[in-house]
């Protein structure tokens, strides 16, 4: 069944249009990630789905019902915010109970749901504390718990990890992924971080300047990007772009090769000078100055002794190369 469907959704603030004709289908139980650079409209799209902003035109269906005129509380959604947005005057328990009380749920149902959620998120010791007495990671778990107790048709996450430090971010990412599996919930998740998108999503929606650039599974987008923007946005370190003519390709086209597809190859077509080496232990990233002055990143697995200023010859399997025209559209070689 379709959990969410958008048809021709547009949004403008006054004269400024931020979303253009967004069409999207989300199936039940899917984990969908909206990703894009800041200002691409991904948060606005999420807010339109939540009902915090009205769509200027277009239709929004949640679980088959048109919700354009439905207030946020009645859309059957729950949202987790970047800044947690916990109610400062309520305890953890009170924070989780508030929405259920507003819905008019009986007390025993509220208590049971809170017990369930707090067990799932390990919040038991903190139920009677106030948000100010919790650490960042705990606050984010409470915010997730507040969404879970509502048993919504649709979970909306607005950059929930960007206020956490790196270690905690990884843990919380795994927790969210577990939660998705155990609840079988439909989740829409907004982030600007392509790693989060790649690791969490069943389906990634890449947005740029208010338009959908491409929709697909992480591996589809990685292996088969529709254009130069998607190719460059997903994958870290990001894809190398250089004029195709430098390796004997057609004039005017851009060649894209991922750093992990490049290899040292005496018969390779590229020659470049090492300008920077990053030793990460597990892999080694080498930045080189290629022909016509473009930077090329090479990702080698394992540890390598490469000196600054060395000249390397690089090659790549031809089937791993992408070609883009002047407008950034993908073309055959």
């Amino acid at each position: 069944m379709t959990a969410l469907s958008l048809t021709k959704v547009n949004k403008s603030f006054g004269k400024v249009q931020v979303l253009y004709d967004i069409d999207l289908q989300v199936d039940e139980g899917e984990f969908v990630v909206f990703v894009g650079p800041s200002g691409c409209g991904k948060s606005t799209l999420l807010r339109v789905i939540a009902g915090l902003e009205d769509a200027t035109s277009g239709e929004i269906f949640i679980a088959g019902e048109q919700v354009n005129m439905t207030p946020p509380a009645k859309r059957g959604i729950a949202m987790v915010f970047q800044t947690y947005a916990l109610y400062p005057h309520l305890t953890v328990r009170g924070n989780m109970a508030l929405a259920l009380k507003q819905e008019g749920q009986p007390k025993d149902v509220i208590a049971a749901r809170i017990t369930e959620a707090s067990r799932m998120l390990d919040l038991d010791p903190y139920l009677d504390r106030r948000p100010s007495e919790l650490s960042g990671g705990q606050r984010q778990r409470v915010a997730i718990g507040r969404a879970v107790v509502r048993q919504p048709k649709l979970f909306l996450f607005d950059e929930p990890l960007s206020n956490l430090d790196a270690a905690l971010r990884m843990n919380t990412r795994i927790e969210i992924s577990d939660l998705h599996r155990s609840l079988g919930a439909t989740i829409i998740y907004v982030t600007h971080d392509q790693t989060e998108a790649m690791t969490l999503a069943d389906k990634i929606v890449v947005l740029r300047d208010g338009r959908v650039e491409q929709v697909g599974s992480p591996m589809e987008l990685y292996n088969n990007p529709a254009n130069q923007f998607v190719a460059g946005f997903l994958g870290a370190p990001s894809m190398n772009f250089l004029p195709a003519s430098t390796v004997g390709g057609a004039e005017g086209l851009t060649l894209g090769v991922r750093p992990e597809d490049l290899a040292r190859d005496p018969a390779g077509l590229l020659e470049a000078e090492v300008t920077h080496v990053e030793h990460l232990g597990g892999d080694t990233n080498v930045v080189l100055r290629g022909p016509v002055g473009t930077d090329i990143t090479l990702r080698l697995f394992g540890q390598h002794e490469i000196g600054f200023g060395e000249t390397l010859r690089l090659g790549f399997p031809p089937e791993r190369a992408f070609y883009f025209d002047a407008e950034g559209r993908r073309v055959a070689a």
């Binding site: 939540a50 915090l52 009645k74 947005a85 109610y87 508030l98 929405a99 607005d158």
Partner: peptide, 12 residues
Amino acid sequence: ADLKDAGRIDGL
């Protein structure tokens, strides 16, 4: 703004 929006989503 998130706090106010959280309230709206919770039906306040």
